[in-house]
Structure formats: C-alpha cells, structure tokens
Design a protein around this nucleic acid. Structure first.
Length: 569
RNA sequence: CGGGGCGUAGCUCAGCCUGGCAGAGCGCACGGUUCGGGUCCGUGAGGCCGGAGGUUCAAAUCCUCUCGCCCCGACCA
C-alpha cells in the first residue's frame, strides 16, 4: 500500500480531551476518530490492527474448540425480561422501540440470545458440550465513557458461550478457553495477569479477569509476591490482620466529642489510634437499612457488601436515613445502644477489637471501652474489607501488592443462572430434564488493541507488537523525485510484497523529518530508508522501531534482512 | 444524578473579566527556498464565535434557557 493513496492523515497535536497515551497516539496516528462520546470510527490503519487481533482470536478460539456464529445487535425486550435483566441492567441498556412500539435493546452482551438459540436446538446430553463464539459490536450506555477505546459505549467484543451437562465438562472448557486467552495476550506482547473477579451483572458462580498491567488502568488488582494469589480489589480477600493484645474489659463510658464526625477527627480528639476505633456506616438497599462495622483504619468494599446482602442496589444512607437508624446526625453512629432494630454486619477486622471507640448514636458523643457481646452484638461477621497495598495475602504468600490494570478479558462460570431462568434444559442419561451449565467468556477487542499501545510506546509514538502492527514493514523513500531512489524503493517494496510481508510505502513528497516522525508515531516495526545519500554509497538503511539500531545494507539484501528481522519478531 | 470546566477557522488554542474591525500556530492552496529527524520566506483561501431568546446604539464578550463535550464524584461488563 502506498501512503500517497492511503487514508492516513497524522497530526502533531492530540485533542485536549485525550488523556491517556493510547488515546492520544491512536488519534494522532489517524487510527480512530471520535463520532460522539464513547463512540468511534476505526480509520483504515486502526481497523487493520483490529482485524489482526480478530484473526488471532478466531484462530485461538477455534483451536480451543469453539465455533463461530453471529448474533444480532438488536434484541427484543421479551428475551431480557425472561431473565429479569431488562430491569437489572438499568440505564446501561440502550433501549429503543420499533414502528409498532415494541421494545428492543441494543445488545450489551448475548447470554439471553444464545440461550434462546440453544434451548430450541439441544435436547440431549449427547449433544453437549457446545462452545460458540462471535466477534461483534456491543453497546453499553456507560455513565462516563472515557479514554478513547478503553471505555467506549459502542465497542467490539469477542464473546463466547459454552453449554454443559456437568461441572467437570464446564471446568474442562473453562480451562481450555483460559489457555486460549493466555495465548492470545501473549501473541499480542502484553504483560497481563489473570485474577479472581467479581462477576457483576453477568452473574454466576465465579469468574476471572485478564488484566493488562498499566498505570492508567481503571481497575485495581492485588497480587501476592509469587503470584499465587491475584484478585481484583472488588473481590480480593486478605489474610488475618494483627489482633490487638488481650486486655481486661474496661468500663463502657460515654464521652463528649463535639463536632468530631470522622474517624480521623475522633481518633485525634481522643488520642487513640485509628485501629482502636470501630467505624460504623449506615447503608441503604432496596430492601432495608443495614449497619456495617469495620475497623477504624479500613474501608468497606461495597461490592462484597452488596454480594453479602444479596442486594440489587446499595448506597450509603443519607442524612435522613442515618437519623432514622441511629437517631443521630451523620458521624456518630455505632453498634452500642441503638434506639431501634437494625441489621448489623461486621467485617472481620473489627471482630477482635476490645475496649474500642464507637459512635454513641447521639450528637457529639462517642463511647469508649466498648466490647462485643457485653455492649454490642453483630449477627453476621464476614469479609467486607477493601484490600490495600501491603495487606497479608489470604494464602499466606507474603504481602499483597496493589497494581492498576486494564480489564481485557473476563471469563465466567455462570452455573445455571440463565439456563434455569430460560428453561434451557437437556435430557440426562435417565431422561430427566436438567438445566445446562453455562460458561461465558468475553474479550474486548478494541480495548486490547488500546492496551497494547498503552504498554508499547515511547515519547515518539507507538511501538507495535508485531502481531497487531497495522503494517509490519515500512519503506521510506526520501528524495522521491530522484529516479534512482524511486526505483530502488519500488523494488524493495515489491520484493517485500512478493514475500508476503504486510508492507507500507511512504512515497509522499515530504521532507525527511516529516517522514521519520510519522514512521515513529505510527510505529511500523521494521523500516527501510532509501535516500540519495545512502544510495551514493550503495546502501539503504534498515532499522527496528523497538531499538532503533540501524544497519546499512546493499539494496539487494534489504528484503532478506527485513524478512529475517520479521521472523525474529 | 451531584460538583467543576469547555464549545471561536479542518486541528490546537488566544480573545470574554472591562461590550466597539474575529485573531495566532499548525494544516491547506500557490510561488520561492531547503532537502537524512516536524526547513525558512512570502501570498492566499478558510468563521452562523454550538443553538435559541434577552439586555444594549452596539454582543464572541453580559443575562436566561438549551444542546454537545470533558474532568471529579456517585454508579458501572
């Protein structure tokens, strides 16, 4: 492909709203173009990278025994109502009506549609297991799209769904697809980590996320030193915290704490460490108000809390709710001497505390010397804490380290959540109907490409991993008007084409500096420069984008050298 | 949804506070110059100042409403 005839217009400047480097570089490199918030066109160069990733994904999914199909982007409401997700998905679901006023949505994921297909065709355990995938455009009406392709509203995703007669079969397939994902991300040259995850609105028994490590990632991940434990912080458990030294129970005393509303205020005011306090938060769900206690220095993990409560919606209670539950303004809640009934759940971090400080459920007052059992009772002790850097790993493997990550893939053991709701059943060996076990496996195509840029760039531009580079090689002809230069450049270009190399030819009448800057920005992995100056010595210059080491070779040897460099990747 | 900010040339932005000829750089066209890391000089084209209403002799500028976009938070595969 010749640049002079291609659709590729680089810019020196990125739009001011492009904050992360992948977004900046992909816009400057003329790979994507914003159409609306979170909605992008892929320009030809960007589309080539997307297509390359899609091919890798197809290859590996097929190798893992999955079969490609394609489902519609528009779904009838009835399917989503069967699983209750028409309501549960909320505003994330883009809804629309047809001319007959029937409800539809633009599919954000395809569990309902695939389950509807399979339940019509599959009757017997003999037909299982099944594994199907598609690569398709999704739409999720995200509250706040951002970071270019990183969190779009419209985005390309590979989604796979598997159906099984028993758990063993599901586990086997889950493992096969996990391995396929590893091969895919390795092929893309990504440094990634598979972590335990919360399954969110997709639901199901368990799930794992594939996280590309990057400082700009939107997710936080903890990992133990050997990597034996890794989890999204939404999910992460921690090992036991230090327990306070045993002490004789003190007397419960009420102390005046005027205006001391936060744990920090109270700790400073009373001259106690944060760890001697119990922090009490009043949460509101669609069903009830709940009191939550955690050690004073810790934060509540709301994802864990919502899961524990089995709630659809969870939010901190406002001023009015707090007063309703405690009879006091915000800042003075506690588990001791509550005016009424309130369900209390506690994080394990608060359980071993003795003679602790807590709110007195009255304005400007706290208790000191409080003890569980004698003064206060929590019915449910569980793990509700937000893990942080340095916490003990739950498997005893040292201290957890906190990383930022980009979620590029998420695989789920769905159990029978969808099959049971939608009567997707099969006859087992005894002729009994049973719901199928299902797995679901997502991989963000655009996000993975963006993550690859995020992880592979320098001050001058993108350094594409070979597998995702829109073109593998670039021929730069300087002095385009010079017939000898044009001839040599053309013959190298043709030679690379014949060798099956994805090659691009910068044949523009531009100054050398412009061409070099553009080559670096776009990040062609291998480059050959043909100029009058080099040609006078009988040489052309071959170099790699990654290390920029230049080799001068005879024009006749350029194709062979470049092929060798491409082989070495 | 709460808080903050921004919409001016194709792009990045100044001008707005304090109302009075609509600007710069980049890009584009043309001429010259230069020619291995975003040359330099000159000429030129290009604007409903997001939209609607209001105040005023006069509005990019002040006021009201509205649409879009971005950031923080809440929320969220």
């Amino acid at each position: 492909m010749r640049w002079s005839r291609y659709y590729l217009f680089t810019t020196r400047e990125a739009p001011k709203d492009a904050e992360v480097v992948s977004h900046r570089l992909m816009v400057r490199g003329s790979m994507i173009r914003k159409v609306a918030a979170g909605i992008y066109s892929y320009l030809p160069l960007g589309w080539r990278s997307v297509r390359k990733l899609e091919e890798i994904v197809r290859r590996e999914m097929t190798r893992a025994g999955s079969v490609e199909l394609s489902m519609p982007a528009i779904h009838p409401a009835e399917l989503w109502q069967e699983t209750d997700r028409w309501d549960v998905y909320g505003h994330l679901l883009l809804r629309m009506k047809d001319r007959n006023d029937r409800d539809f949505c633009f599919g954000p994921t395809h569990e309902e549609v695939i389950t509807d297909i399979v339940r019509r065709d599959v009757r017997s355990y003999r037909q299982l297991p099944l594994s199907l995938f598609q690569i398709q455009t999704k739409f999720r009406d995200e509250i706040r799209p951002r970071f270019g392709l990183m969190r779009g509203r419209e985005f390309i995703m590979k989604d796979a769904y598997t159906f099984h007669a028993d758990q063993e079969s599901l586990d086997e397939t889950y493992e096969a697809i996990r391995a396929a994902y590893c091969r895919i991300f390795e092929a893309c040259g990504l440094e990634y980590s598979m972590v335990e995850a919360d399954s969110g609105t997709i639901g199901g028994a368990s799930s794992h996320e594939f996280m590309v490590l990057a400082d700009t990632g939107e997710d936080a991940v903890v990992r133990s030193p050997s990597g034996s434990y890794a989890a999204n912080v939404e999910r992460a458990r921690i090992g036991p915290l230090e327990t306070p030294a045993a002490a004789a129970a003190e007397e419960l005393r009420r102390v005046e704490t005027p205006g001391q509303r936060t744990v920090e205020d109270v700790a400073r005011f009373l001259g106690k460490p944060l760890t001697a306090l119990v922090k009490t938060l009043i949460y509101e769900t669609e069903k009830e108000l709940v009191g939550v206690v955690v050690r004073g220095d810790r934060e509540v993990n709301e994802v864990k809390l919502r899961n524990h409560l089995g709630a659809k919606h969870l939010a901190l209670g406002g001023e009015a709710k707090v007063r309703e539950a405690t009879g006091a303004p915000v800042g003075f809640a506690g588990p001791v001497a509550l005016p009424g009934e309130l369900r209390f759940v506690g994080d394990e971090s608060a359980r071993p505390l003795v003679n602790f400080v807590c709110g007195a459920n009255a304005a400007d007052a706290h208790f000191v010397g409080a003890n569980w059992g004698r003064d206060a009772t929590v019915e449910e002790w569980t793990d509700l804490v937000l893990a942080r850097d340095g916490d003990p790993s739950p498997d005893g493997d040292g201290a957890l380290e906190l990383f930022r990550g980009i979620e590029v893939g998420h695989i789920f053991d769905l159990g029978t959540k969808y099959s049971a709701a939608m009567q997707c059943v099969f006859a087992d060996e005894n002729g009994e109907d049973r719901p199928m076990l299902m797995g679901c496996y997502g991989l963000g195509i655009g996000r993975t490409v963006a993550a690859a840029v995020e992880q592979n760039h320098d001050a001058d531009g993108i350094i594409w991993p070979m597998a995702l580079a829109p073109f593998e090689a670039l021929v730069v002809s300087l002095d385009s008007d010079d017939a000898a230069v044009a001839g040599v450049a053309d013959s190298i270009y043709e030679g690379l084409l014949e060798a099956g190399v994805d090659v691009f030819h910068d044949d523009r009448r531009e100054r050398p500096g412009v061409k070099f800057k553009d080559a670096d920005l776009i990040g062609f992995p291998v480059r050959v420069v043909v100029g009058a100056r080099g040609l006078a010595e009988g040489k052309v210059e071959v170099s790699l984008r990654r290390d920029r080491e230049r080799q001068l070779v005879d024009p006749g040897d350029a194709v062979a050298l470049m092929r060798r460099l491409l082989e070495e990747r």
